[in-house]
């Protein structure tokens, strides 16, 4: 489904190289995790895939279902089935959460040549999905993320994911700032979306989240490259020994 080949990326303004040849394939239905120390390029990978400005791809490719992601505008990538759950969801005062969700859902449907959802159908759908994530009517009425707690913001991200039904979900440090209960709720929301048709790329510092969202493959990223890949046990190893051993081993290899 998602294929990243030899991806090289630098910061547009500073010319600083961040990704130095990332190669990664996430097949349909699988959950992959990317772990790595601060500054290794994890978040940059998520931004480049979703089309944030400020990054220049100097080499390599990224495709979703064979379509070149890097050629597309961010909204086109979304319509193609890519979703990024933000590490820091953005507050948008004055724009109601419902308005935002409906605009997004219908914009994507329109871009894909599908019929827009009616108010009634949309309302029914959003209420059903919100309930599962313990998001009340009040939260849906409030402006996007304004006055939301850290946990509420992340749940709101998962609600958007549930409404947009993407093919490929990237979670950028979704566990950051969450207590155990909030993390469980978020993880349950993600697990409910797991299907043979949908893939996940979970970016995280800690193994904790991966107790709840069990990955098929774990990749360790360091200095702009994937230095090691393995099963869920790799995450446990990081938890026990830190990154030091793995990185030393990778440097020797």
């Amino acid at each position: 489904m998602l294929e990243i080949k030899n991806l090289h990326v630098q910061l547009e303004e500073e010319g600083k190289q961040i990704l130095k040849g990332v190669t990664l394939t996430v097949p349909a239905g699988e959950v992959h995790a990317i772990m790595g120390p601060n500054g290794s390029g994890k978040s940059t990978t998520s931004y480049v895939l979703s089309g944030r400005e400020g990054y220049e791809v100097t080499d390599g490719s990224a495709t979703l279902d064979g379509r070149d992601l890097l050629e597309m505008e961010p909204e086109e990538r979304a319509a193609a089935g890519l979703f990024l759950a933000f590490q820091y969801p953005v507050e948008i005062p004055g724009v109601g959460n419902m308005t935002f969700l409906r605009t997004a859902v219908n914009a994507q449907r329109k871009a894909r040549g599908e019929e827009e959802l009616s108010s009634g159908d949309f309302l029914k759908l959003v209420r059903e999905k919100a309930k599962a994530l313990d998001i009340d009517a009040e939260m849906l009425k409030r402006p996007v993320n304004v006055g939301f707690s850290g946990g509420e913001k992340k749940r709101n991200e998962i609600l958007q994911m549930a409404m947009l039904e993407p093919r490929m979900c990237i979670l950028d440090e979704t566990d950051s700032g969450l207590d155990v209960d909030a993390m469980r709720l978020v993880a349950e929301g993600v697990n409910a979306l797991r299907s043979p048709e949908r893939s996940f790329l979970v970016i995280t510092h800690y193994q904790r989240l991966l107790d709840h969202i069990v990955p098929d493959v774990v990749h360790i990223m360091h200095d702009g490259r994937i230095v090691k890949s393995g099963g869920p046990e790799l995450a446990l190893e990081v938890e026990r020994n830190g990154y030091g051993d793995i990185l030393a081993e990778a440097a020797d290899a």
């Binding site: 961010p74 724009v95 997004a104």
Partner: peptide, 25 residues
């Protein structure tokens, strides 16, 4: 904020309209 809206599939022009309304709120 513009990127956030676009990453949800909201086209750029529409996202700008929403952000202008947000500013005027």
């Amino acid at each position: 904020a513009l990127f956030y809206l676009r990453s949800r599939g909201v086209p750029r022009e529409r996202a700008i309209v929403l952000l202008v309304l947000s500013f005027l709120a």
